[in-house]
């Protein structure tokens, strides 16, 4: 076995599938570590995963359902909010973590050699368990309000995969830039707070002025959240196909540019971080 390392080598080491496959154990252990660590020394433990979005749903139901004026969907407002909120929680949790995932594990980056892309990958999968619990809670509410459950629910894994890809694309960007400029980690919580209001979490795409809808769909979350609602609530919430295409395209652009940026910069991480 001979392995040459040259100063002219460029990035993209992680693009080799065998390299990634060999490191799957690291990913699994990091996932385990994060799960174990999150709820150590808490009283409520894993129940926090359910409580957080539920409390948030209450606030949204109160503010938007009671105070705001929205079209009547013929459904309890909480059922409009919860599917969207579940995915929003998954998304925002992962982005919050993703922006700091590299500098948080700088101990690993500066001391051992492993495919660093595992770190943003891990951050993007974070809280999958929480998402599943939240989706189950949503189904519980549907049963309570006697809303019929359809086979559309089976499409949820597809929505999940695309949300994961969105997380991954954004995390590649944020984590990389944050290594060089820590401004990112100050900005991210603010942007996420704004994001909750500019994404159709508390309302639907129909509430957006028709002439702006196409532009609005550039936010990949629009397509994802609308699809999530469709999975739960059925035909009336069938997302606009064009909108899905636009959201999908901007998701793809984010992901590819993120991979490119990460690959270009990855070799400098250990020196700069």
């Amino acid at each position: 076995m001979e392995k040459w390392i040259n100063h002219t080598d460029t990035g993209f080491r992680f693009m080799k599938p065998p390299v990634l496959w060999k490191s799957r154990g690291i990913l699994l252990h990091l996932i385990r570590r994060d799960m174990l660590v999150t709820y150590k020394q808490t009283i409520l433990g894993v129940f926090w995963t359910v409580l957080k979005p539920l409390a948030m749903a209450m606030v949204i139901v109160f503010v938007f359902g009671r105070l705001g004026s929205f079209p009547d969907y013929g459904l309890p407002y909480i059922l409009i909010a919860l599917p969207a909120l579940s995915f929003w929680e998954f998304f925002s949790n992962s982005i919050n973590r993703g922006s700091i995932c590299l500098i948080d594990d700088r101990g690993l980056i500066t001391r051992i050699s492993f495919p660093r892309i595992i770190l943003p990958l891990n951050a993007s999968l974070r809280n999958t368990l929480g998402l599943i619990i939240n989706l189950a809670v949503t189904v519980g509410f549907m049963l309570y309000y006697e809303v019929s459950i359809t086979l559309n629910l089976l499409l949820l894994p597809v929505v999940y995969i695309f949300t994961f890809l969105l997380n991954f694309g954004i995390n590649l960007w944020l984590s990389t830039v944050n290594v060089f400029y820590r401004d990112v980690m100050t900005l991210v919580p603010f942007i996420l707070r704004a994001g909750l209001f500019i994404s159709p979490v508390a309302f639907t795409l129909q509430s957006v002025p028709p002439n702006l809808q196409k532009l609005y769909c550039l936010n990949p979350l629009v397509g994802l959240i609308e699809s999530a609602r469709f999975c739960f609530l059925g035909k009336e919430f069938l997302p606009d196909f064009q909108c899905l295409l636009i959201s999908g395209a901007s998701l793809l652009a984010l992901l590819l540019s993120g991979l490119y940026l990460f690959g270009k910069c990855e070799r400098k991480f250990a020196d700069v971080i």
């Binding site: 076995m1 001979e2 392995k3 040459w4 390392i5 040259n6 100063h7 002219t8 080598d9 980056i109 500066t110 001391r111 051992i112 050699s113 070799r267 400098k268 250990a270 020196d271």
Partner: peptide, 21 residues
Amino acid sequence: SEVTDPSEGRFVLRGTISSML
């Protein structure tokens, strides 16, 4: 140990390497 990249030159490893840095 490939934690960081050389700025010039090159090297070859003819075996697996592990480090206790």
